[in-house]
Write a protein that binds this DNA or RNA. Structure first.
Length: 191
DNA sequence: ACTCCGATTGGCT
DNA sequence: GCCAATCGGAGTA
């Protein structure tokens, strides 16, 4: 099990995103080690990507997107949910990958407690669901995933058979092209 | 100061 | 399938 380093994250966002599939997201909190395998992600680039928070330059919220790759970018949305992203690209160039779904691997009992459900399908299959299951909130915004022991991503050698891509169009609020990648056939992919 | 609205979810029809 | 909840960020003035 090898933790991903700076080299992994500081590359083209569209290259990093699909390669995060199959990796393990590890969260240590309250004496628990919560682990989930990443099965769905979405890439967000800079000015050229109208769907990205960074499309209109740097603001207080999105500033971490402009920092080095390998940091946690966590923000609050819809008045209810925290969404977790990992930053990409070298310092100065904005980029991030939203983690949209996990396959629960370890610490499932605690995830169930955090989510208020025992249905494994509803535990971490959604960007707002997985942050609640893993107790990820804005306190973790900006932390370095390459050195933190509370939150990091590791490679256990698992190889994803088939990666699917859905440049989704027609999201609420307008027509937008999305760079969504997911593990084909995995039951924990959101929908 | 004010308005608009979203990288969502869960509940109800 | 439809829609309310809920609130901070971002844009406009």
């Amino acid at each position: 099990m090898r933790r991903l380093g700076r080299r992994f994250y500081e590359r083209n966002t569209l290259e990093v995103a699909p390669q995060l599939l199959g990796k393990l997201l590890v969260r240590r909190v309250d004496g628990w080690e919560l682990v989930g395998r990443i099965v769905e992600v979405e890439a967000y680039r800079g000015r050229d990507d109208p769907a990205s928070h960074a499309s209109r330059g740097m603001t207080p919220r999105n500033q971490v997107m402009f920092r080095e790759g390998g940091l946690a970018y966590v923000y609050f949305t819809y008045g209810n949910h925290y969404l977790f992203n990992v930053t990409t690209e070298p310092r100065g160039r904005p980029g991030a990958v939203l983690v949209r779904a996990l396959e629960p691997i370890a610490g499932v009992e605690y995830m169930m407690r955090n989510r208020g459900t025992r249905d494994p399908r509803l535990l971490t299959s959604g960007p707002g669901r997985l942050t609640k299951a893993l107790k990820i909130d804005k306190r973790l915004n900006g932390i370095d995933l390459t050195t933190s022991n509370e939150l990091f991503i590791a490679d256990d050698g698992y190889v994803v058979e088939r990666v699917a891509r859905s440049p989704r169009i027609g999201v609420s609020g307008g027509t937008r092209r999305k760079w969504r990648f997911y593990v084909e056939g995995n039951p924990y992919v959101s929908r």
